[in-house]
Structures are given as structure tokens and as C-alpha cells.
């Protein structure tokens, strides 16, 4: 039963039994605090009083100030969108376990449209049956608010730095295979079956291609003029190394386009595997890319898949 009641009810019952405590705790309310904010912070304070045994109701002390400070840190994080040094964040995360705030506001901390969504309760709050704040589908990957969210996560989850060197020999072989294949096909041109060429070359080097398809309408963040109902985008990788992206009306057209794009890199004098930064799901990530020597006039298309996303990344975000 108790699990179905909100924490607020429990707190008010508790305070009803301790009128003196109730009176005292009310003095800690900030002037500009809304009722909702205050109730949440009050719960935080009351729940953590035991952890600060030197706090005595009605007696100002430095330990009380510390508790108040941490409660404000938590409230600022939830209601204002502030973030604090990691050690502080860890501490309030622990202290706020079990407190539920329904419908906490969202705030953006950086200007490049990064949404920093704080889900109000601690995510570890799995056993609580309380209905959580309604979250949109993209808010499920709740990341910690603030700069931590915008920092490129590449260091942790990107490809290892030695990866380009490891992959380079294979692509040197592939380069030769493609070159011969193109010579026998009469040179690179629009009338080739690009995917077939690429596939056969890769397979002749004892590897396979991996294609990822995404319907165009599922790609968020495109300008409205671009959001067409139909059409697919295909991304081709080989051994986790990105080779090309293409768009087409159906999947095979997209695949053909992506292969053509990939083959373009083989038109230069050599191909190189490099770690580059590009966008993936609205974040900057480090990706393994196959490049020719030509300087690129523009950035890379955003990645559709990201093979280097390991558990660490998932951990870091929860």
C-alpha cells in the first residue's frame, strides 16, 4: 500500500505526528521557492536528517548548513538545470534515492540544441511503483544534465587509438582489389553496379560488408524541407570502418548510392583509415572513417550506426 502513495503523503503524515519538527522545518523554506519545489526539498531534508546526526531541529549548526546546501544542490539540479562537480553529483544522487518529483521542468544548458533532460527521480528507483514523470521516447536515454552531456564521449567509448593502424593493411588490400575490378569494368562511372563491385571486392578480401538502413522519416533533426515521407538512407561499413552513406527511394537504391559513395574514396592514390569526429544521434562521437587524400570541403554526414558504443557509454549516461 505504502508504495502506491506518493512520498509527499508520507511526509505530511510524518510531520503531522511531529508538529514541532513541522514548525521548524517550515522555517527552512526559501522565500522564492514554489510549493512544489519546497515539498520536494523538504522531503530531501527530512529523509537525510539521520545521516547528519549533529543536526538538531531549531539549532543552527554547520552540519545543518551542509544538509541545506546539499538539498539546494539537488533542487537546483532538478528544477533549475544546474550541474555540479562529479563528487557532489554522486553524493546527491545517493541522498535523493526514493524521492519522486512528478513533472520536473526541462532546461537546455548549451546552445547547440542539446537537450539536457534530468529525470527527477534517481533512475535506480526501480522498485518504486510510483508512476514516473511522463517521458517522451527520446528522453529515455536520460543523460546527466549539463556539460557532461555535451562532452564528446569519444574518449570512453570511441574506437581505440590503434584501430586505424590495425585496419589499414586490410584496406590497402581492398584498394588494390577495387582498382583492378574497376579497370576490368571499364573504369569508375555511373553505369556500374557499385554495390556488386564493392561486395565482390570485399569478399575477395575475406570480409563482408555491413549495411544499415534507416527510413528517412526516422532521422530526427533534418530540416523540415528534407523530411520526406518515403526514402531510405543506407550506411555501409566494413570491419566497423565507415565507408559511405547514400540515399534512395528504396533500400536497394540507397545501398547502391552508398556503395558509389564508398567507391569514390578509392579513386585517389590511396585510402586511409582515420579517426574522425562526426555527429551521431545529436552527439559528437569519434568514428573510424575510410578517407582518400583529398581535403574534404564539408563535414561528414551524421552516422546512422555506431559500433563503438559499449557498456561504458551506457553506464556513463545513467
Amino acid at each position: 500500500m505504502a508504495g502506491e502513495r506518493s512520498g509527499e503523503d508520507i511526509v505530511s503524515d510524518y510531520l503531522g505526528q511531529n508538529p514541532q519538527l513541522a514548525q521548524w522545518v517550515e522555517t527552512l523554506r526559501g522565500y522564492c521557492e514554489t510549493r512544489k519545489q519546497w515539498l520536494a526539498r523538504r522531503e530531501f531534508i527530512l529523509r537525510n536528517m539521520e545521516a547528519f546526526p549533529t543536526v538538531e531541529p531549531g539549532v543552527p549548526s554547520s552540519s545543518l548548513d551542509r544538509l541545506l546546501s546539499l538539498s539546494t544542490v539537488w533542487a537546483n539540479h532538478v528544477f533549475l538545470g544546474c550541474s555540479y562537480p562529479q563528487a557532489v553529483m554522486d553524493k546527491i544522487k545517493e541522498m535523493s534515492e526514493g524521492i519522486v518529483v512528478i513533472d520536473a521542468p526541462t532546461h537546455r544548458t548549451t546552445m547547440d540544441g542539446m537537450k539536457a533532460k534530468r529525470s527527477a527521480t534517481t533512475e535506480a528507483d526501480a522498485d518504486s511503483c510510483v508512476k514516473k514523470a511522463k517521458c517522451g521516447p527520446n528522453e529515455l536515454d536520460s543523460r546527466p544534465a549539463g556539460r557532461t552531456a555535451t562532452r564528446p564521449v569519444g574518449q570512453k567509448s570511441g574506437p581505440p587509438p590503434q584501430a586505424p593502424a590495425e585496419h589499414q593493411p586490410f584496406f590497402n588490400r581492398l584498394y588494390k582489389a577495387v582498382a583492378w575490378k574497376l579497370v576490368s569494368a571499364g573504369g569508375f562511372g555511373p553505369n556500374l553496379d557499385h554495390f556488386e563491385i564493392l561486395r565482390s571486392c570485399v569478399e575477395s578480401c575475406k570480409q563482408t560488408l555491413s549495411c544499415v538502413f534507416v527510413p528517412l522519416k526516422d532521422i530526427a533533426g533534418l530540416p523540415t524541407a528534407r523530411t520526406q515521407k518515403e526514402g531510405h538512407v543506407c550506411e555501409i561499413r566494413c570491419q566497423t570502418v565507415y565507408m559511405g552513406t547514400g540515399y534512395g527511394r528504396d533500400e536497394s537504391a540507397a545501398k547502391a548510392m552508398a556503395s558509389k559513395e564508398a567507391l569514390k574514396a578509392f579513386q585517389g592514390r590511396k585510402v586511409t583509415v582515420k579517426i574522425c569526429r562526426r555527429r551521431y544521434k545529436g552527439r559528437d562521437v569519434e568514428d573510424l572513417m575510410l578517407l582518400d587524400e583529398q581535403p574534404r570541403s564539408q563535414g561528414f554526414p551524421p552516422a546512422l550506426s555506431y559500433p563503438f558504443q559499449d557498456e561504458q557509454l551506457e553506464d556513463g549516461s545513467s
Binding site: L68, S69, L80, G81, C82, H107, T109
Partner: peptide, 29 residues
């Protein structure tokens, strides 16, 4: 620290209908 809440690492800026970050409201405690 008993005043750690005054010093957030990072904070939200509400554009509040404006276009640039410097015109927005910094949501600082």
C-alpha cells in the same frame, strides 16, 4: 562545503524568446 550549492559547474540558459545565448536568462541559484 556548506555553500556548495552556490557554485554549479554548468547551468541552463533560457532564451526566453530571444535569439542569442547572451540575451537569455541564466538560471543560476
Amino acid at each position: 562545503s556548506s555553500i556548495i550549492d552556490f557554485y554549479p559547474d554548468d547551468f541552463a540558459i533560457d532564451l526566453n524568446g530571444k535569439k542569442y545565448a547572451w540575451q537569455g536568462v541564466a538560471l543560476l541559484p
